[in-house]
Design a protein around this nucleic acid. Structure first.
Lengths: 138, 138
DNA sequence: GTCCGTGCAAAAGCTTTGCAGCCTT
DNA sequence: AAGGCTGCAAAGCTTTTGCACGGAC
């Protein structure tokens, strides 16, 4: 199901460095296309393929995380510390969120089955503060 | 972000009825293609487009749920009661799983932010009992 | 008779990949 | 010099959609 390649050597590339920097500079959980549009100014000949290839590499290196959040396209984040996501169904915003004491619950869950849990994902869907405000204003 | 259409009238169709029946008869969390292959025998002229259209309708009716689980394609299930998923990273199996007391945690999470939580998704990734057995056997 | 559902085929949308040349090490 | 990285373009895969006809109500 999942490929894991060992003994991979990577060279540095200016494109990859900048992709990582950009991802680290924002809390927006960008798409590949967002990164591509931004970096096209610095690298006029940049191609989307290169962005995708580097995102895959960075993900394999554990420096970023690919976010599948129930849309047709993916987003990416450089925040690799444990956290969860609040996903606004109105504007699509993804907001980082730390739930205290969640790990005990998760741990207890793992004990309940034959299944060996290696990781988990928790996502909340709803309406963000911004969008709530807007709907009240109307 | 999300379309909600009111006052929709649906007619019955043999194809849609069978898609729902099939989904209700299995715990496999099938893909659109799986359903298509199965039903092609009953409806030789069936098209994938029809399967997708009906899955969308059934989902809108709340009779089934679309599962985005981090792959390039979606799966579907007719189990619409609250539950979570164990996803095997080895064989791709999705196993239903009920975590006791999870709702208190979820409720407390909602109180922590400006965000109005309408729903949530919890997924566990790891190795299923079957695949564990196989790797020991080798 | 309406108008929803279907089959067929084409298109869309995001992501991946083959290739030849460039850049990092 | 070796081999990873790039741009470009083509292809891939899942899902959606336009159209004209058939079927449910």
């Amino acid at each position: 199901m999942q490929k894991k390649v060992e003994n991979v050597t990577y060279k540095q590339s200016r494109q990859r460095v900048r992709i990582l920097e950009l991802l680290r500079s924002t809390t927006e959980h960008p798409t590949a296309d967002w990164l591509y549009a931004r970096l096209k100014k610095e690298f006029p000949r940049l191609s989307l393929g290169t962005v995708y290839r580097n995102l895959t590499i960075l993900n394999d290196q554990g420096l970023i995380k690919k976010i599948h959040y129930g849309s047709t396209f993916d987003r990416f984040e450089a925040n690799i510390t444990p956290h969860h996501h609040l996903i606004c169904e109105e504007c699509g915003a993804i907001i980082d969120f730390i739930m205290p004491n969640y790990d005990e619950i998760i741990a207890s869950a793992g004990k309940l089955t034959d299944f060996t849990v290696r990781s988990h994902k928790i996502e909340f869907f709803g309406i963000c503060a911004n969008c709530k405000e807007k709907s009240i204003a109307q």
